[in-house]
């Protein structure tokens, strides 16, 4: 899932300083699962904001809404009539959701309420870890299902580098060395010999380096055109 973390309240209050009425918009997708911007977080942040502004003597009216997903245009229809009456929208969705809100409401100010962190997994209560960087050309088939792009601090393809010790990465004793994990897993699977092969230079054009990416699937576009 996409993992996000709510921005500090002071930063958010700074965004909203000139507004009297906002919509605080949660998302029922990833940010609900990672407890950053679902209905519950909307409720908590909504009262915090109202309280802080009441204390300043400049009340803020907060309309709280949470929709199914903010990364899909269809779900905005239900709130369109209410958006008309607010000064701005504070979105607690990931960066994709926030941008979709801005696109759906071109005349409305939209503020980001979270920092979108990474594509990752929930490891433990309150702990998430990065797993994928959407490089566009997956190499997990060669690396025992462990991603060197996202999980090696240097995104190298022929690790581990000389900084790997006791299974940890040179950047920190809390960070597993991805290539040590790959090595151990391939050993367990009886495939460690495959690490003798030199993985070739990556074609980064499938990643962000090729410019903003877009996916068009003609099988679907043609079908919908019928």
């Amino acid at each position: 899932m996409i993992v996000a973390e709510r921005k500090p309240i002071d930063e958010i209050l700074g965004f909203l300083s000139k507004h009297q009425k906002i919509m605080l918009l949660g998302c029922g997708g990833c940010v609900t699962v990672c407890l950053a911007g679902g209905e519950k977080e909307v409720g908590i942040l909504g009262s915090e904001l109202a309280m802080a502004r009441a204390k300043e003597g400049r009340p803020l009216e907060v309309v709280q809404r949470t929709i199914e997903r903010q990364c899909d245009f269809e779900y905005f229809e239900g709130i369109r009539h209410e958006v008309k009456d607010v000064d701005a929208i504070l979105s607690l969705a990931c960066g994709i959701g926030i941008q979709t809100v801005a696109e759906a409401f071109p005349d409305k100010v939209v503020w980001p309420g979270v920092n979108t962190k990474f594509l990752g997994v929930n490891q433990n209560v309150g702990v998430w870890a990065e797993r994928c960087q959407a490089c566009g050309q997956c190499v997990l088939d060669k690396t025992g299902g462990i991603c060197p792009v996202a999980r090696c601090s240097k995104s190298i393809f022929n690790g581990p580098c000389g900084g790997s010790q006791h299974g940890k990465c040179e950047v920190s004793a809390d960070t597993d060395c991805a290539w040590a994990l790959i090595h151990d897993r391939l050993t367990r699977l009886g495939q460690v010999d495959s690490m003798r092969e030199i993985l070739p230079v990556k074609d980064w054009s499938h990643s962000r380096d090729g410019g903003p990416r877009k996916l068009v699937r003609e099988d679907l576009t043609l079908e919908s055109g019928k």
């Binding site: 581990p160 900084g163 010790q165 690490m195 003798r196």
Partner: peptide, 14 residues
Amino acid sequence: FADPFEFRVTRLEK
């Protein structure tokens, strides 16, 4: 002196 020890030789081979 880095780990995994045996792989250090493989890496030199690569």
